[in-house]
């Protein structure tokens, strides 16, 4: 009996210990443990859009991290940084509807891990002609001691050109034959120069080419687009030089040769042309040769005429002298 009671006491004590441990066990919440797993990233596109008023944008927020990404949308204005060939934020604009039409429910949200969200927006223009962008801001930042936050800019480059802008864009096509006399080209070698300049306050996207033609006949083509992949910043100039050598026969080269530059600036087409009238040197030589032959034959002919006239005069003089002598003899 004593043993039973003793064992019961031990059991009760053990039970109480177990019960106490269950009741008073401290829960250690998971702390912010900085692990060593590979990093994920947030991806936002498009980074840059070239648009006109009314054009749509498909903003994509892609979350490749293991954690939800909470965001809000706003807008910012930007200024061109001509020195660094970049942009600089000027001002934050909370009301994104000043520049973009976006559904109310898309202005705030969360993108789950390994997921993406597509937000439809429409660009409604920028009255002040400054650059604008949609700002995607991470909203979970708090200023506890030093808080750190992330923002992405989906920049819009406005492609609209005003009438004044169009007058401030020049291409300066110039063609210099290698041998030009009194406005006539005598050679078959041409130096073509094209000089684009942007005197507007906007970024310009330009593509173009130069075509050389003789009437309807195509002679050569020079592409510039691959050298114009970067937009032209305000105040920028871009120069192109080509050498065109016309290897046709001199007779085919005689006449007008036309140099046509076609280019597109912010989606609008332009065309300029330059004509050169060619008188090939071979024709000059040929004409000169014929002229010399003509002159020489005229000289020879005139000299023969002179000799004939002289001999005729002499003959007449002799006849006169003879008749005078005959008259004298008759009188005598």
């Amino acid at each position: 009996m004593k043993l039973l009671v003793h064992n019961l006491k031990i059991l009760i004590i053990l039970f109480c210990i177990l019960l106490a441990s269950f009741l008073f066990m401290q829960r250690v919440n998971a702390q912010q443990v900085n692990g060593s797993s590979e990093g994920g990233v947030i991806k936002v596109s498009p980074a840059i859009s070239y648009l006109k008023t009314g054009d749509p944008i498909k903003l994509i927020i892609e979350n490749d991290t293991e954690f939800p990404f909470s965001y809000s949308l706003s807008a910012s204005t930007f200024d061109l940084n001509l020195e660094e060939r970049s942009v600089k934020r000027l001002e934050n604009i909370d009301d994104v509807s000043l520049f973009f039409t976006i559904k109310e429910e898309d202005l705030f949200g969360q993108v789950e891990p390994n997921n993406k969200k597509i937000i439809e927006a429409t660009y409604i223009g920028s009255e002040s002609n400054t650059l604008v962008g949609i700002i995607v801001s991470q909203t979970s930042a708090t200023a506890i001691n030093v808080g750190v936050s992330t923002e992405f800019a989906s920049l819009v480059i406005d492609q609209t050109l005003s009438i004044e802008d169009k007058g401030l864009i020049s291409d300066n096509l110039d063609v210099k034959p290698s041998n030009n006399v009194l406005g006539f080209n005598l050679s078959n070698k041409y130096k073509i120069q094209s000089d684009f300049s942007n005197d507007t306050n906007k970024l310009l996207k330009i593509s173009g080419e130069i075509t050389v033609k003789d009437g309807k006949k195509y002679l050569a083509n020079y592409a510039m687009s691959q050298y114009l992949l970067d937009p032209l910043f305000p105040g920028d100039q871009k120069e192109f030089q080509y050498t065109f050598i016309d290897n046709r026969s001199f007779w085919d080269r005689f006449g007008e040769t036309e140099f046509i530059q076609t280019y597109v600036v912010n989606g609008e087409s332009y065309i300029s042309s330059y004509s050169v009238f060619t008188v090939p040197a071979e024709l000059i030589w040929l004409g000169g040769g014929l002229f010399v032959v003509l002159v020489v034959s005229l000289i020879i002919r005139s000299r023969r005429n002179v000799n004939r006239y002289e001999s005729r005069i002499k003959q007449l003089e002799e006849e006169v002298a003879q008749s005078e002598e005959d008259s004298t003899n008759k009188i005598n």
Binding site: A47, I48, F78, R85, S86, V87, R89, G133, I135, A141, A143, I144, N145, V146, G147, V148, S149, T150, E151, F152, A153, L155, I157, L203, P231
Partner: peptide, 12 residues
């Protein structure tokens, strides 16, 4: 306290 914000923008 302070709040530092990083803004990433593409270069045109």
């Amino acid at each position: 306290t302070d709040l530092i914000t990083f803004l990433m923008t593409g270069n045109p």
